[in-house]
């Protein structure tokens, strides 16, 4: 029985198949309306979330399934000190599949080791967030047609930004990609991602602190939020949080078909005025995330022999 903890748990063939299923769901939603009838998804969210939790829950409902939920660690036995392992073992007796978010890195792997049903990592601290990456990939695929030959700018917190690390991992495996890494010095992409992923696979990239200078070359601009919860020092957060703010003025130098993405939530790194620009794709990402989660739930339940 398989769980999805990291985007590398899925092969490129499987990601392609998930994108194909998601596209089919978009075109023929009624064909999937009863696919998960009488099946239960447990959403265990020990860290705040709006999109990811609701997206998983909406995905399961649209597949005809049901949802049981823990929202916030304070409302569960985790507040009494229950371990992740015990929680996973318990919940897997109630549900057919689990989606879990937890502030500790590696928590989803611990849950998967003890659960008797598939576990989907819905974010484990600053570590992995594979279903966000699936949403990102479907968005790029739908907006650009393919991944081949794209210049992808990643901007903001590249150090703690789990979505960025996962996206780099996934796009690297497709090849034909060039990255522009835009961040303040303190939030540069960690060396292990550069060495183990980019350099090892011969993926061209450049690092810069200058968003405006990088803009004209980009096919995709992936903005990220500087995350307060990842800093031990509030002073550092306050100093870095407004380093990059995307405005209509900055968008003028971008390609006419550039695609602006953001895993959301945003704080102020993308001006609200950019939302009306047809190149703003971040709310499409949200929608695509639901379809990819539907496809993933289907795939894992089928593999587990539960549907």
């Amino acid at each position: 029985m398989r769980s999805i903890i990291d985007i590398t748990d899925l092969s490129i063939t499987e990601i392609d198949a998930l994108m194909a299923t998601a596209s089919d769901i978009i075109t023929h939603p009624d064909d999937y309306a009863d696919s998960c009838r009488r099946k239960k998804l447990a959403t265990l969210f020990f860290e705040p979330s709006t999109r990811t939790r609701l997206s998983f829950e909406a995905a399961m409902y649209e597949l005809g399934g049901n949802v049981i939920s823990v929202a916030g660690g304070d409302n569960s036995s985790a507040a009494k000190g229950e371990s992740v392992a015990d929680t996973a073992r318990t919940v897997s007796t109630y549900a057919d599949i689990i989606a879990m978010r937890h502030p500790k890195e590696g928590a989803a792997l611990v849950a998967a080791q003890k659960s008797t049903v598939p576990v989907i990592n819905a974010g484990d601290g600053g570590h992995c967030h594979p279903t966000q990456t699936l949403a990102d990939l479907l968005t790029i695929k739908r907006e650009k047609g393919s991944f081949e030959g794209l210049t992808v700018g990643l901007c903001g917190d590249l150090k703690f930004g789990r979505t960025v690390h996962s996206l780099i991992n996934a796009l690297t495996r497709y090849g034909g990609i060039r990255f522009v890494l835009i961040s303040p010095e303190e939030l540069k992409l960690p060396g292990y991602v550069k060495n183990d992923v980019l350099k090892k696979n011969g993926i061209p990239y450049e690092q810069t602190t200058d968003l405006a200078a990088a803009m004209p070359s980009l096919d995709i601009l992936y903005m990220t939020r500087v995350q307060r919860e990842r800093f031990f020092n509030e002073e550092d957060y306050l100093r870095l949080k407004d380093t990059y703010i995307l405005t209509p003025d900055k968008m003028r130098s971008a390609k006419p078909d550039m695609c602006v993405m953001h895993p959301l939530p945003r704080v102020n790194e993308i001006s609200v005025a950019v939302d009306d620009d047809p190149r703003a794709c971040y709310f499409k990402q949200v929608e695509n995330g639901k379809y990819m989660r539907m496809a993933l739930i289907l795939m894992l339940l089928k593999e587990a022999g539960r549907i």
């Binding site: 371990s83 992740v84 500790k104 890195e105």
Partner: peptide, 18 residues
């Protein structure tokens, strides 16, 4: 931030990656 810092009796496991 690692789960090993507070999960009860969880073994610390390291993998050779390079």
């Amino acid at each position: 931030r690692c789960i090993t810092s507070n999960e009860q009796e969880l073994k610390h496991v390291f993998k050779l990656t390079d």
